[in-house]
Each structure stands twice: as C-alpha cells, then as structure tokens.
Computed example of a mutant assay.
Amino acid sequence: MDTSKSLCLITNIGSHYRFPIFSEMAKNFACHFYLGNKVATPIKKFDYTKLEGYRQTLKNVYFGPFYWQRGSVRLLFKPYRYYIIDGEPFCLSSWAILLLAKLTRKKTIAWTHGWYGREGKIKRQVKKLFFSLHSALMVYSEYAIALMQKEGIPRRKMYCIANSMDSDKERAIREQLTCSDIYRQHFLNDNPTIIYCGRIQKLKRLELLVDCAAAFKEEGRPVNIVFVGKDVEQVNIDQYAKDKNVADSVWMYGPCYDDEVLGQLFYNAHVCVSPGNVGLTAIHALSFGCPVVTHNNFAYQMPEFEAIRQGETGTFFEQGNAKSLKQEIECWICVDADKREQTRRKAFDEIDRKWNIHYQTEVIRKVLNET
C-alpha cells in the first residue's frame, strides 16, 4: 500500500508516553500528525517539534465536558485517505469529521477505549451511533471489544490495539538489570518491598496499601512500601502512614521519569500494587519484570489490566477490600528467588507478545490494509 500522504492522525493531545509509537508510525506510514494543545486534566506532553510528520497544533476549545478542535475539520479537504481520530464522543469536531468523511469517501478510524461496562442507557446509545460512523475501530482491550460486540457493533471492524510505552528502550534496559540492594540501602532491612508508581490520587485508594502494611506489621511480618510519583491531590499518604504507625516502612520517593532508575525499582520489588485502577503502571511494571496486583471490577479499570494474567504476571483482589488485597500481596512476597525469576520471565513474555510499539504498528498496518 502506498502510504505517501495517506494517513492523518488527529488527537486531543500528544501524551508524553505516545512519542515512541507516533515516531514508529511516522517511519512506517509517512503519517502526518495534528495534535491538540491541552486537555481538561493536565497531562505531560512530548515536544511536538521533535516528531517527524508533525504538522500543526490544534486548539481545543471546551464547552463544559465537550470540546471542539479548531482547524481539524478542514483537514478532510487535504489529500489524506485515512484519518485516525480519538474515539471520544465528547469531541464535537470528531462528529463533524465523521459526517464529512462519509460525503468525501474518506476512511475514519477510531483509536479508542471503546466500552467500559458502566455506561448508562443514554451513553450507550450515543456511543453506538458514534462508533457506527467509523470505518474501523482500534480498541485498547479485548474486554472492551467483547462488550461492544454485545451491543451490536460488528466484530470485523474492531481491532485490539493494546497500548505501549517506550518498549524498545525498556527492553534494552531490562536486559542489563540485576538484583541489587537498592531497598536495603534505604530501609536498612531485607523485608519484602511493594512498589506503587504513578500519580498519587484519591481514586488510587493507596490508603488500602498502607492498611495492609499495618496488618503485616501487627503479625510480625513487616513489609516495605515505596511510592514513586507526585501527590497531585494532597492525598498525604505519608501522614496516613504515620497515623498507622508504619511511617518507617514507607519511602515517599517522589516523581521519577528515568527508566533506568525505575527499572531498578521495579526489578527489585516483590510486587507492584495499584489498589484503585491500573493503567500504564501495569505495562511499566511488567516491562521490568514486576508482577502487578489491582482490583477485579473491570468496568472501573483501565485497558492495561489485560496484561495481568492471573497467578502468572499478577493477581486481582476484591475492589475496596483491604483483607482481600493483603491476601493477594502475600502470594507474591512469600515466593523464593527461583519463583520470582520465573515471574520476571512471564512478565517480559507478556510485554513482548502484545504491549509494545511493534505489535501496535502491525495492528495499524492490518487496519489500513483491510479498511
């Protein structure tokens, strides 16, 4: 397929983590990128000017929960054949693009979360109409695809795109990783270490993790916890740890964007725990061989939960239940060195199987060839 000037991607923002996959798209498909300037919730952007194929920053104009991307609709009159857009019904300009594409015989492809499983009646109807207007749907998870199929959306037009981070860089780092005393140096003990990595927010329910640490301490089996991330909502989890008398077992590491450092932190931890939903944290942890524990209410999860294979790359606990969370943590902190190494290998295999930029590139290639 001749992809010269064929593919146009329009998205609400160039999230920092998507630079590697966008770069791969530019290399493989001569893709041109039109990226929004901001979203309602602050997200770290990459430097747009460093992306090959970058063409323009679009201004997102908000009307409550809805927004319009100025300059996006006129792109339908440029010589592109395929348009990848956010599968987000709240973007009003996307509706205009979809309708105009029908008139101009252009192909529109959603890159979308699709269904969550908690949509009410009105939202279900709106989403069904919105997705019906697309030529194809690239959906993050098989879970969402199954829900959408039940809603009557044809399976043949849906493709699982999964998600990725800087997978090539992370693979190179992981090949150099070895066990170290990074936690012993800080905590001055050999207790099992649990890691959380991500923004510290109320919806992440991190107090449940501290409750588990307090319960383990009462049993005479103390654990360490390292929180890697910025407190963006004044959660004050460190004060909660003091109140629970486990402050000496908690390391408030702060934000870190250095994958070599993060690789060491994940590789040497026993388990990564995200008591609220888990998103790219799961991919980050598994990329460096760390199993993941999160809750089992998938309607309130992010699509990356699918990288967790029960008992192999992680486990699920009953949402909001500290006792259930403690039981799942216990499964991972009690393993011996051989079992821990087996888990690392399974985590690497899962990332290499699906959660990387090369898998995503081949999915996009298939969509373009079949649409």
Score class of each variant (00 low, 15 high):
Gln149His: 15
Ile43Leu: 12
Ile283Ser: 02
Glu233Leu: 00
Leu103Thr: 09
Val126Leu: 12
Glu119Gly: 11
Glu341Ser: 03
Lys127Cys: 11
Thr41Arg: 15
Pro255Thr: 05
Phe77Cys: 00
Lys59Thr: 08
Ile109Asp: 00
Glu119Pro: 12
Ile13Cys: 02
Ile357Gly: 01
Ile283Tyr: 03
Ala347Tyr: 02
Asp248Ser: 13
Lys217Cys: 06
Lys323Val: 10
Tyr257His: 15
Val367Asp: 00
Glu328Tyr: 04
Lys50His: 05
Asp243Leu: 11
Leu75Trp: 14
Thr178Ser: 12
Lys339Asp: 12
Ala282Glu: 03
Tyr253Ile: 01
Thr315Ser: 13
Asp47Tyr: 07
Asp2Glu: 08
Glu328Asp: 10
Lys150Asn: 15
Met148Ala: 10
Phe298Gln: 07
Leu133Gln: 13
Leu92Trp: 04
Tyr116Leu: 03
Glu306Thr: 11
Tyr82Leu: 02
Ile333Cys: 09
Leu325Pro: 05
Gly64Ala: 04
Ala241Pro: 04
Trp251His: 10
Glu175Lys: 02
Ser164Arg: 07
Cys91Ser: 07
Asp86Ser: 13
Tyr34Leu: 01
Lys45Arg: 09
Leu75Tyr: 06
Asp258Pro: 14
Val61Met: 01
Gly152Trp: 11
Val235Phe: 11
Ile357Thr: 04
Pro303Lys: 01
Lys242Arg: 14
Ala136Ser: 13
Pro255Trp: 13
Glu24Trp: 01
Lys326Val: 06
Tyr34Phe: 15
Arg81Asn: 14
Gly14Trp: 02
Ile84Asn: 01
Gln56Asp: 11
Leu208Asp: 02
Glu52Gly: 00
Ser180His: 06
Ser324Ile: 05
Lys339Trp: 09
Ser135Asn: 13
Ser249Ala: 13
Tyr253Lys: 06
Arg55Asp: 03
Glu142Phe: 13
Val126Ala: 07
Lys217Tyr: 05
Met1Phe: 15
Val223Phe: 03
Val250Tyr: 08
Asn224Ala: 02
Phe187Cys: 08
Asp181Val: 08
Glu142Ser: 10
Lys323Pro: 06
Leu98Tyr: 09
Ala30Arg: 10
